[in-house]
């Protein structure tokens, strides 16, 4: 019963918040709505017995990503409303509706192969975090390590890109010319 209530509440909230994200003219509103939506999505994970994912969702999205966006927005002028004129409204509406309908059909279509056998079944009596940990450090170890490297690279790239001075570029060019 609680599950049903929770599901519908979260659904309504998430859809509403994301709607604001997409439609709002103010960047600050959108970002706040996005952060809220992320938190509520973690609620779904908890309903689905995926505690680990729920925690990661809160930590990474609301903690890290949204913080990044917040810092990023400091660079931009966010108090002004974003001016966006939608060109070719007809195309916009057709595409939106068409893709929405198609996605819905695909996802709500009855699943044919209902008798899928789990390759890595959830273990009885063992916590979700434990099983995920087992899987991550055995079968998905290489992917996990690669993801770690990817994050490291992304972090360095972010720092370098933001910290780069624009004149440095032209300096580089001059140095290159002199070298030639």
């Amino acid at each position: 019963m609680y599950e049903i209530i929770a599901f519908y509440t979260f659904s309504a909230l998430v859809i509403g918040l994301f709607g604001i994200v997409v439609l709002s003219k103010n960047a600050l509103y959108s970002m706040t709505a996005l952060a809220g939506g992320m938190v509520f999505i973690s609620g779904f994970f908890f309903i689905l017995d995926a505690e680990f994912l729920g925690v990661v969702q809160i930590v990474v999205y609301t903690g890290a990503i949204m913080a990044l966006y917040a810092f990023g927005m400091m660079f931009f002028d966010t108090t002004r409303d974003v001016k966006e004129d939608i060109r070719c409204k007809k195309i916009f509406y057709t595409l939106s509706i068409l893709s929405a309908v198609l996605v819905l059909i695909v996802l709500s279509a009855p699943i044919f192969s209902a008798n899928i056998e789990a390759i890595y079944p959830t273990l009885e009596g063992v916590g979700n975090v434990q099983t995920i940990g087992l899987l991550l450090f055995t079968k998905y170890l290489v992917a996990f390590e690669l993801a770690a490297i990817m994050l490291l690279v992304a972090m360095i790239a972010g720092i370098v890109l933001v910290g780069k001075k624009l004149d440095a570029q032209s300096d580089d060019l001059e140095v290159a010319k002199e070298l030639k």
Binding site: L95, S99, L102, V103, I105, V106, A109
Partner: peptide
């Protein structure tokens, strides 16, 4: 994407 989805259906 729409075309691909249509194909998938």
């Amino acid at each position: 994407i729409v075309i691909l989805l249509a194909l998938a259906i």
